[in-house]
Nucleic acid binder design. Structure first.
Length: 577
DNA sequence: GCCGTTTTCGGCCCGACTGTTTTCAGTCG
């Protein structure tokens, strides 16, 4: 049983306990543990087998949950969870996804009416049975009814890149309103998470009514969910929820801090404030006086808010309560920026499945101001993409030789290849061909469903090939679409380290592979990470910034990344000079 | 259920909005 599966069991247990009305802190403990487990770069099973480590060393995992992890790893089951599932049909949990219907109300519906499915709930609403329950009314019944269809799609999160397009439109729309003095998009969008579930907007405005009216005029609006004096929530036709908060200028920084999150980061910050006799909320930092009154200490800027707690202003990407508070002692890392990138080392041309010619891609690289690019078309196994055989590849490299004269002094053009790692293991093209290139990427495209050992052996084998420089998209995951393959990344990292090889952070917004947790782990091992576009057309080169966002979440600095260096320095890293 | 430089017990973040209430519980973020 892997970490994701263990975390899912704990989440399920938390859901069921919540439904039962259990102690809320106990429920939180399960959820915290699930989060911790999901962000571990090592498998729980490996930690259990390693006598030098204890599960209880990890935050949020105590004696009890460590034992439950062990039971899950050994048996794949959790007796406590199975007992609960016997009492509560899993289908009732679907009710919790209906906006406005939480565990308390759902429990009443289940207990009083015996309803356990969304269909049963729909019928009860239509028969006006829900409004008869204590604490319910006609309005609640209507909310539930119209929320049932939403429940199916409610927790769909969109790629950050897609959220960004929406944010730009919202920004333009709101900025044209009169009296909006400040405007920030907070939440997971600001933290640069790979996916975004809703949009949080924060403003300082002369009139909150005008700001809200303006949001109400947004063309994609489907419904206004709530609107009060300072807060408004709307749902767009795409089902995306947008929340707007209007705050006073002296609270703007505090509100930014508060609404940027993450929730877990803020819980920690609040705890630190409390230890110091301070209170922090979206309006500011306050000193709690002996008589119970409160004095405003800070709140105008985020820097002020953190400074009031003797904390540095954490970059939003680090605010996950992973290890950012521990980093304070040694100083926060200076996170990488788009400007640090001096080359792109993974792209395709129309020789295979790209849309633009070799020269067009080179010109695009020059337009980006890069020192170098690597042309890395597919190898022959990827027949669907018209992959290159030895003859066509060598022909392309000859052309590059000629183009190097033409573009001398403007950009370095590396002879590269994205060479397929074959299903049975081994590289798609022979070593005597590969060794004539500058930059060989190895990647898996076929046999993604193979067992862990087999697929790991293939990747490790590729890294041991002296011609290979880097593993592209090492887990193969596609966000929201395809799970990662069952690769043992510990073994991959170990091998990369021993052989002075690199791993890729593929910047395509659907891949972002490696993810933040594994990039952080690779950095910890001292393995350089290449952030590449995998562009299949000129505009495809623009995705680098999504990769940078992910890299920042992993705490990467310029020094951790391959293509912030000159090509000569990269060759040194590879031990080739 | 977790955690500890006041603590091994008694805390565990906190405010806005809605609906159903006559002062508050539930939900959400």
């Amino acid at each position: 049983m892997n970490n994701a599966q263990i975390a899912a069991k704990f989440e399920m247990l938390a859901d069921l306990l919540e439904f039962q009305g259990a102690n809320s802190f106990r429920i939180r403990a399960y959820r915290n543990a699930a989060r911790t487990i999901e962000s571990l770069s090592q498998q729980i099973s490996d930690i259990l087998n390693d006598t030098s480590q204890k599960l209880t060393d990890f935050e949020g995992i105590g004696k009890d949950l460590a034992e439950k992890c062990q039971v899950l790893v050994e048996t794949g089951k959790l007796p406590q969870l199975e007992d609960l599932q016997k009492k509560i049909p899993p289908s009732v949990l679907a009710m919790l996804r209906i906006p406005g219907l939480g565990p308390k109300k759902a429990a009443v519906i289940y207990k009083e009416l015996g309803i356990s499915t969304l269909e049963g709930l729909r019928e009860a609403c239509q028969d006006e049975k829900i409004r008869a329950l204590k604490g319910f009314g006609a309005k609640t019944e209507q909310t539930i009814l119209s929320g049932i269809d939403l429940a199916a799609t409610a927790d769909q999160r969109v790629y950050w890149a897609k959220a960004d397009k929406l944010v730009q439109r919202l920004r333009e729309h709101l900025e044209s309103a009169k009296g909006i003095e400040k405007l920030t998009f907070a939440g997971s969008y600001r933290r640069g998470k790979e996916t975004v579930g809703d949009i949080d907007i924060l403003t300082v405005a002369e009139s909150s009514n005008e700001a809200m009216d303006r949001l109400g005029e947004f063309p994609d609006l489907e419904e206004v969910i709530a609107r009060g004096d300072t807060k408004m929530s709307i749902r767009l036709a795409s089902n995306m929820q947008v929340d707007l908060r209007v705050v006073p200028a002296k609270s703007y920084g505090a509100a930014m801090q508060y609404f940027t999150g993450s929730k877990e980061h803020n819980v920690k910050v609040r705890g630190i404030a409390k230890q110091r006799g301070l209170k922090i909320n979206e309006y500011g930092v306050f000193r709690v006086n002996d008589d119970g009154s409160e004095t405003y200490v800070a709140g105008e800027t985020e820097e002020d808010v953190y400074a009031a707690l003797d904390l540095p202003c954490f970059p939003p990407e680090l605010r996950e309560n992973r290890d950012e508070f521990k980093l304070v002692e040694t100083g926060l890392p200076k996170l990488i920026t788009v400007e640090d990138i001096v080359g792109d080392m993974h792209m395709h041309t129309d020789a295979t499945d790209g849309l633009n010619t070799l020269e067009e891609m080179i010109e695009a690289g020059i337009a980006k101001g890069y020192q170098y690019i690597a042309i890395t078309d597919h190898s022959k196994r990827v027949s669907m993409a018209n992959g290159l055989n030895a003859e066509r590849l060598l022909e392309q490299w000859k052309t590059i030789d000629k183009l190097r004269n033409k573009y001398d002094g403007k950009i370095q053009i590396l002879k590269g290849l994205e060479c397929d790692i074959l299903e049975q293991g081994g590289m798609d093209l022979p070593d005597e061909v590969l060794e004539q290139g500058d930059w060989i990427i190895a990647s898996v495209h076929y046999g993604q469903g193979q067992p862990k050992q087999q697929i790991t052996d293939r990747i490790v084998g590729a890294l041991e090939n002296p011609n290979v420089c880097i593993i592209a998209h090492p887990t193969g995951r596609l966000i929201n679409r395809r799970e990662p393959y069952e690769v043992d990344l510990d073994a991959v990292f170990q091998c990369a380290k021993e052989n002075k090889k690199f791993v890729e952070l593929n910047a395509n917004p659907a891949r972002l592979d490696l993810n933040d947790v594994y990039c952080h782990a690779a950095k910890g091992q001292g393995i350089p990470i290449g952030i590449n576009s995998d562009g299949h057309k000129i505009e495809g080169l623009d995705v680098i910034r999504y990769g940078i966002m992910q890299a920042r979440r992993a705490g990467l600095t310029k020094e951790d990344v391959v293509n912030t260096r000159s090509w000569d320095d990269i060759r040194k890293l590879l031990g080739r000079v």
